[in-house]
Write a protein that binds this DNA or RNA. Structure first.
Lengths: 352, 352
DNA sequence: CCTAGTTGTGAGAGCGCTCCCAAGACAGGG
DNA sequence: CCCTGTCTTGGGAGCGCTCTCACAACTAGG
């Protein structure tokens, strides 16, 4: 291994001077700098990050935390895309991303300590978890630099307009003439689930349709959970279902099919997320598109800004816009939809 | 921050002794050990990994490398599940996993150096790449400890029985009476793609069916690529298609549908992978199940064994078995299949 | 021409840990 | 009783880097 010392010797200067050159600090004569750079080049010197970290107490390593409650959802394309965005941000900022899955509930505490207390990891992005998730609690208490994906009280976060998206989806169904609209939600402990539910409810209210509790069923964000939810819902004869994730929507469509019902002829379906799966379903799924990759990207950007000491002071939490993508699972073609919309544009309303 | 020094002072011993206790080394009197442990407990001491790394030249950090050519496939559930297995292995072995996506072809070299040369990363798992991928080349040259997922000449690897799986899938279609069987492959530069193609070809040969090159089309492992492949294939009137990945199979089914063809009545389809998506398709996809999670797990296990110096000597490359999962996209129910199989069991043949 | 300020460079003390080596204490064999 | 060996402990030199401080050299103002 070639060290600073070696470079210094070859260039005929001190270690300090080489260090200054490497780190782009001022107060080095141009000629000296050139000599050092030549030596660096010649020896193929690369700074040793560990040694540097020990001295500076910085590692340039952040982590993406997937709480235990989400770990079984990890094969949802949502996470892959989120991760892609997050890693991309790391790449552009010169950081490394360690992926932490709390896969074993019993070792949760241990893994947490190992990772975050005294670890390589300087800060973390935590994927949308319930506010009472043990990991969230620990993060809040420890005061470790962290950015949450999805609204999280007491933590800086990046979120999408869940309320607006859900409202848009529901309004769309309403505008198509559906009245008896059910919804399948994620776990209600998650704030974004509540926001989406509120959007659904307010859309109904705005159209003078009473909110019926039996039409709201929890699907746990899984395909299987959604199928069970459909079974509960079917006796109530819903005309349409707003489903809080595309993965669940896939389950819904499968369940409807197995009950001999057609989509959208018998029941219309709208999802949320717009993961690649959505357009692969039969029929292609109408859904609320959220900018998942951007979500991951911005979360890391925010975190890195925090760590690098840029943009100090109280920062605004970011809420990204969503967009309704009309396909055919709701009984209307995209073309028809666009024509209709040009008549009466739907305003995207923000929240928070 | 509480250091070894602090603990030593409180326990009334030297730094060395505390270090011995912490690392479970012998030659410490039981009574001394107890005193040290008490001090550790009292102060809440946790060793500083960076400092330790600097001294030992070990970091306990490995990386999962996704070559640039695969990065657009990253939202394929395959990778999420692979990653899950890999991280799980890291968790059990006390390692951290950094996720490296080479998302920018121009910065590939730079990211590689940053990560692997002089980085925190001790070794890497590289996801199934073509042998001539620049990352694979660099890895081979640098002699960095690495385990490949998928056969990789010159590198230790973990693979599945691609040949056997493809052969099984094709034989299954043959046994159902299909004669004109097309196949949609991944990029032929990948060895596992070639293995699967060989399995397909040999199955045909074993049944005395001539191999027709026009029936083999490359689909690039993407949904869109597969749809294009179907368009090419359709004029040739295939009765069945063996598709080299489930994601592509989803594209195939979508394309067939848009051409007004039914699955399996008009064209039978068999996939490969058995990702969760497979059972969500309509009709549910018959496919070759590979133990994806185990693949990721074993790759990390192997790598960590290498790093920790266990099991030295020339180690065998691992080839995991696959299994045919019969659903309904091939025109036969699982029940029918099982009945049929009990008459004439199909032998799973391995390779390599 | 003296002083104050600025620029350029080197010395050296860490950062927190490991690990080699020396040395003291004690045991057992001759 | 001495010598060799084993167990137990402490001292201290690193690991490769950063960063403060001191100091020399040079500039410019009065």
């Amino acid at each position: 291994m070639v060290t600073l010392e070696d470079v210094a010797r070859l260039a005929g200067v001190s270690r300090s001077t080489v260090s200054r050159v490497i780190n782009g600090q001022p107060h080095v004569r141009a000629e000296t700098k050139a000599r050092v750079l030549a030596a660096v080049e010649r020896l193929g010197y690369r700074p040793h990050p560990i040694a540097r970290s020990l001295a500076t107490r910085r590692t340039k390593v952040v982590s993406m935390l997937i709480p235990e409650s989400l770990t079984k959802l990890f094969s949802d394309q949502f996470f892959a895309i989120l991760l892609q965005g997050a890693v991309h941000a790391c790449n552009t900022r010169g950081y490394q991303m360690v992926l932490a899955l709390f896969d074993d509930p019993r070792r949760q505490e241990e893994l947490y300590r190992q990772l975050l207390q005294n670890g390589y990891v300087e800060g973390a992005v935590v994927a949308s978890a319930a506010p009472d998730d043990p990991v969230i609690q620990a993060l809040r208490e420890d005061g470790i630099p962290v950015v949450a994906v999805g609204k999280q009280p007491g933590l800086p976060y990046v979120d999408v307009n869940n309320y607006g998206g859900a409202r848009m989806a529901t309004e769309h169904l309403l505008s198509l003439g559906y009245r008896r609209i059910a919804t399948i939600t994620g776990p209600l402990s998650h704030l974004h689930v509540q926001d989406r539910l509120a959007g659904y409810r307010d859309a109904l209210k705005a159209h003078g349709i009473p909110y019926e509790e039996e039409l709201v069923v929890e699907g746990g964000f899984t395909e299987v959970g959604a199928m069970a939810a459909v079974a509960k819902l079917l006796p109530l004869r819903p005309e349409a279902i707003f489903v809080q994730s595309d993965t669940m929507a896939a389950g819904v469509m499968r369940a409807l099919r197995s009950h001999g019902l057609r989509v959208p002829e018998d029941v219309a379906v709208v999802g949320f997320d717009d993961i690649p799966l959505a357009s692969l379903l039969d029929p292609p799924l109408t859904t609320v598109r959220q900018p998942i990759r951007l979500l991951g990207f911005m979360a890391v950007e925010l975190l890195v800004d925090l760590l690098d000491g840029h943009n100090p002071g109280p920062r605004e939490n970011t809420v990204l816009p969503v967009e309704l993508v009309v396909r055919s699972s709701c009984g209307i073609t995209r073309k028809q939809f666009l024509e209709k919309r040009s008549e009466k544009p739907f305003p995207v309303k923000g929240e928070t």
